[in-house]
Amino acid sequence: MELAQSTPNRMSPLRSLSWRKTRETIFWYFVLILIALFTVFPFVWVFFTSFKGPADAIVSVPPQLIPKDPTFDNYIRVWNQLPIPAFFMNSVIVSLSTVVLNLLFCSLAAYPLGKMKFKGRDLIFYLLLATFVIPPQLTSIPSYVLAVNVFKYYDSILALIFPNLATVFNIFLLRQAFKTVPNDLIEAGKMDGASDLRVWWSILLPVIRPSLATAAIFTFVNQWNDFFWPSLMLHTRTHMTLQVGLVAMQGMMTSDARGMAAGVTMTIIPIIIFFVLLQRHFVRGLGGAVKG
């Protein structure tokens, strides 16, 4: 800014400075675009492949990206062979109901852990902390036995919801959020004769809304993309989530690259839209997760 007000005879160093700045900016955009190509290229290629007609080669020398004969046939074929709407519905039901119930359970548990003094609090806290290192695949064997013999929800989406009703990660994230709420706020509510449940619902939850949003988004994406456990539980086509259905499709259409590309595109687009809409919360959540 100071340079800009300097006298005319000092223009030439200024011009070279601004030229250097421009050159630097161009360089950084070049680097950024190069990395962007690297990270989205497979999706771009899959997207274009999904519209390729029989006349368009999947691969040729030299490779052809844009279809000359664009068609929706691949989507129609996948749609006719697999219950895509059922996959979508199942994924949406599983992810949404897990988010709602998980946040309810975890925010209930996080309140006393963050704001109350009681016997066994530290014990419970460290017990929960220790479960962080448990590989989820380890618990899958007994969880499978429970699903088949005790809860009888094998091959049903209930099997995907129940084990995720509470997660240690979300309890910690929300506990951290409750800790930052001033005690005066709680005292004031108690003074007005509010019960703990009322304080939690009407005073605390509205205050920690940003953390709830973060927890909700991460839980949603995790559930949406989960594969290991769902693939163990779901076998009937119409009961499958998108990820399990996508793998079933891969098994069915091994030689149909166009069809597979259409299937992949259909599953990725909703989650990308979801991400673009809620992008800000992702970034905040990651920063917060590390600090917490």
Binding site: V40, N225, F227, L246, T267, I268, I271, I272, F274, F275
Partner: peptide, 11 residues
């Protein structure tokens, strides 16, 4: 750059 993270390992 974040898109591969949310797209899910299956897709």
């Amino acid at each position: 750059y974040y898109i591969p993270v949310i797209s899910g390992s299956i897709a």
